[in-house]
C-alpha cells in the first residue's frame, strides 16, 4: 500500500481538516486514480473512525469532523474524475418525522451517508408522511431514514409505514428508523424495516440494503 494512501486514511482518522487537501493532491500527483483514493483511502479512513466511534473512543464531534475532512477532499477528487465515474451508491431520503423538530442526529446521519457515497435527499424536520412518500415517488429513492427523538412521535413513524402501504410502495422501499426514542422492538411494532442506534449503524444498514438491491 502506497504511503500517500495510508496518509489519506490517517488524515481522516486524525481529523486533519487542514492537511487532507495537500495529501489528496499528492496522491493524484503520484498517479493514483481518484477511485482508488476514495476506495482505499477515504472509505477505509471512515471505517477506522466508525470503528473507534462504536468502541467509545470517538464521539459525535469526531464523526462530524471526519465528515468535514471527507467533504474537503471530495471536490478535489471529483474534478479529476470523468463525468459518470462518480457513481452514487443510491438515493436516501432523510426526514425527522412529523411533530418533531430535532435535526442534529438526522444531519449527522446525512453527513456520514454523503461522505460514503450516498446521494442524500434531506427533507428537514416535522415532515408529513405524504411528503416523504411523494419524494420517494418523484425521485425514485427507495431508501428512507426516519429520525424521531421523543416517544410522543412514534405514531408518526407508523404513519410513514402506512402511507407507503396505501401508495402501493411498501415492498419497494426500506424504512430505517433512528433517534433517542427508537429501539429494535419499536421498529417491529411500527412495521419499519430496520433500526439503527447510531449514524454508523445507519450507514451499515443502508450499505447492506444497497448490496442486496
Amino acid at each position: 500500500m502506497k504511503e500517500s494512501i495510508l496518509a489519506v486514511r490517517n488524515a481522516i482518522d486524525t481529523l486533519d481538516l487542514d492537511g487532507i487537501g495537500t495529501i489528496v493532491n499528492q496522491c493524484l500527483k503520484e498517479g493514483l486514480s481518484p477511485e482508488e483514493i476514495i476506495r482505499e483511502g477515504i472509505s477505509k479512513g471512515l471505517n477506522i473512525v466508525g470503528r473507534k466511534f462504536e468502541e467509545g473512543e470517538y464521539f459525535l464531534a469526531d464523526l462530524i469532523m471526519a465528515g468535514e475532512v471527507v467533504r474537503e477532499a471530495m471536490p478535489i477528487l471529483k474534478e479529476k474524475m470523468n463525468p459518470g465515474d462518480a457513481k452514487s451508491k443510491g438515493k436516501v431520503i432523510l426526514a425527522t418525522v412529523q411533530g418533531d423538530i430535532h435535526e442534529i442526529g438526522k444531519n449527522i446521519v446525512g453527513m456520514i451517508l454523503s461522505a460514503n457515497g450516498f446521494e442524500v435527499i434531506d427533507l428537514g424536520v416535522d415532515v408529513p408522511a405524504e411528503k416523504i412518500m411523494d419524494t420517494a415517488k418523484t425521485t425514485g429513492a427507495r431508501l428512507i431514514g426516519l429520525s424521531a427523538l421523543l416517544t410522543t412521535m412514534v405514531t408518526s413513524i407508523r404513519d410513514v409505514v402506512e402511507t407507503s402501504r396505501r401508495a402501493g410502495m411498501r415492498d419497494q422501499v426500506k424504512i430505517v428508523i433512528g433517534g433517542a426514542c427508537t429501539t429494535e422492538t419499536l421498529c417491529r411494532e411500527m412495521g419499519a424495516d430496520a433500526y439503527g442506534e447510531t449514524a454508523i449503524d445507519a450507514l451499515r444498514i443502508f450499505n447492506d440494503y444497497r448490496a442486496t438491491a
Binding site: 459525535l60 464531534a61 462530524i64 465528515g67 442534529i104 444531519n107 449527522i108 453527513m111
Partner: peptide, 9 residues
C-alpha cells in the same frame, strides 16, 4: 451540519 452542530453544542 458543522455550524449547526457547533451551535447545538
Amino acid at each position: 451540519t458543522l455550524h449547526s452542530f457547533w451551535a447545538d453544542t
